[in-house]
Write a protein that binds this DNA or RNA. Structure first.
Lengths: 224, 224
DNA sequence: TTACTGAAAATGTGATCACATTCTTATTCT
DNA sequence: AGAATAAGAATGTGATCACATTTTCAGTAA
């Protein structure tokens, strides 16, 4: 007897896949500073911590290693990539090349709903700053940027940028945890204005400035 | 009894890991056109074909999916990403942003051994053209570019560029299989001259031209 | 011929186990 | 005390199995 097409909801195309959920959880931890740079992770440890077997962890970790978020040493030890001066400047350069471009592509597809969504995220971001909540700040900052980038309809560049954020995420958190966060909000306002006007060049410039200020701030703390 | 440190060679730090070897094999197939765009792959099929169990295949496939070389559809079907107009132009744009930059970084670290290695690869490439061997041509073209990029000492950008090549690789092969290959060699010569002089700007320009001509050629065949 | 159906085959996923290697730590020797 | 060492614990890897879902395809009906 086959009732699935008649009685059961058929409009649930995506069943939840464990290793994808695990990936999102690990990504969240990485981007919000749950793992400090250099931290050693184990498959069994994560499996117990996240309440599943080793398999979904293995798959998620493999993906994160492929994207450069995690490192696999020659002794097969998994760790969060530690930051070095060279890595930092290279990530900065790559961000400066890709993110203004992908942002400018978002301007064309901009609409009122997008601006409204960004406005909401930015409000939560300012609240996180006021409450001095670095974890939430990191999350909302990520949401703000990637909501824009997602709107660009440029999935290939989006993947590259996600890789970059996953690589500097753990380190940024260490810094924003110490320093207060203040000025980047102006660039967010500039970005939202540019999206309202659907102005690619203005959006490109606002993201350029946001990256420059953000990385400059990290560098000040990093180089000393 | 422990003889390993005395009698056994200790200078073999990297034991071969199956899933890494599988990854390299699959990457080779993708870059040289072993898999045509849209081709459906199965884990069990690859396992039998490559003579191992499903596990190493799963890990290698996971990595290739993370890098965008393979696609995982909502029905959990694995396939080589088919090319679309949008994807093609996005890859082109990303290549144009990243590869001239990473190339220019290689110029600084250039040395005679590097130029010699490139000269050898380029000779093999010309031979592949003469013999009309698209598979070898694709391989040598990849080796030429990535030998330069590797010399840049920019592992983060290198990962991004590898992702891009894996994504347009299968499609390029379809094209180079039909059209003859001829003119890109001039840009290779220009690149080697720039490396001899350790001239970042000249190297950047040669790569820019190489990408432009290469993608232009693909487009001509693609847009009609 | 064409569209539909349902059973069988195939597939990705998650779980578990064995094993070689690596890491940890307590003990010994200088 | 401090370095070397060996036993034990822990870890990543590969293999295998069960299961739900998806795909394939022969058989049926219009």
């Amino acid at each position: 007897m086959e009732l699935s097409t008649s009685n059961v909801r058929d409009d649930i195309p995506d069943r939840t896949i464990a290793h994808e959920e695990i990936y999102k959880q690990l990504r969240y931890s990485i981007l919000t500073g749950g793992f400090e740079p250099g931290k050693v992770l184990t498959i069994r440890g994560l499996a117990e911590q996240l309440g599943c077997s080793a398999m979904p962890i293995r798959e998620a970790v493999r993906k994160l290693v492929a994207l450069g978020a995690l490192e696999m040493q020659s002794t097969r030890r998994i760790s969060v990539a530690p930051m070095t001066k060279e890595r930092f400047y290279e990530i900065w350069a790559a961000r400066a090349l890709l993110e203004p471009e992908i942002a400018s592509r978002a301007a064309i597809h901009s609409n009122a709903a997008l601006v409204r969504k960004l406005k909401k995220i930015d409000a939560q971001l300012e609240k996180a700053i006021a409450k001095n909540d670095p974890e939430k700040y990191s999350l909302k900052n990520w949401e703000f940027h990637f909501t824009i980038y997602q709107a660009s309809n440029s999935p290939i560049m989006l993947r590259l940028v996600e890789s970059l954020w996953l690589q500097f995420g753990p380190f940024m958190r260490v810094v924003t945890g110490r320093l207060g966060t203040s000025l980047q909000v102006d660039h967010h306002q500039m970005a939202m204005d540019a999206l309202k006007r659907k102005d690619p060049d203005a959006l490109r410039e606002s993201i350029r400035l946001d990256i420059q200020d953000g990385m400059e701030r990290i560098r000040m703390d990093f180089e000393t």
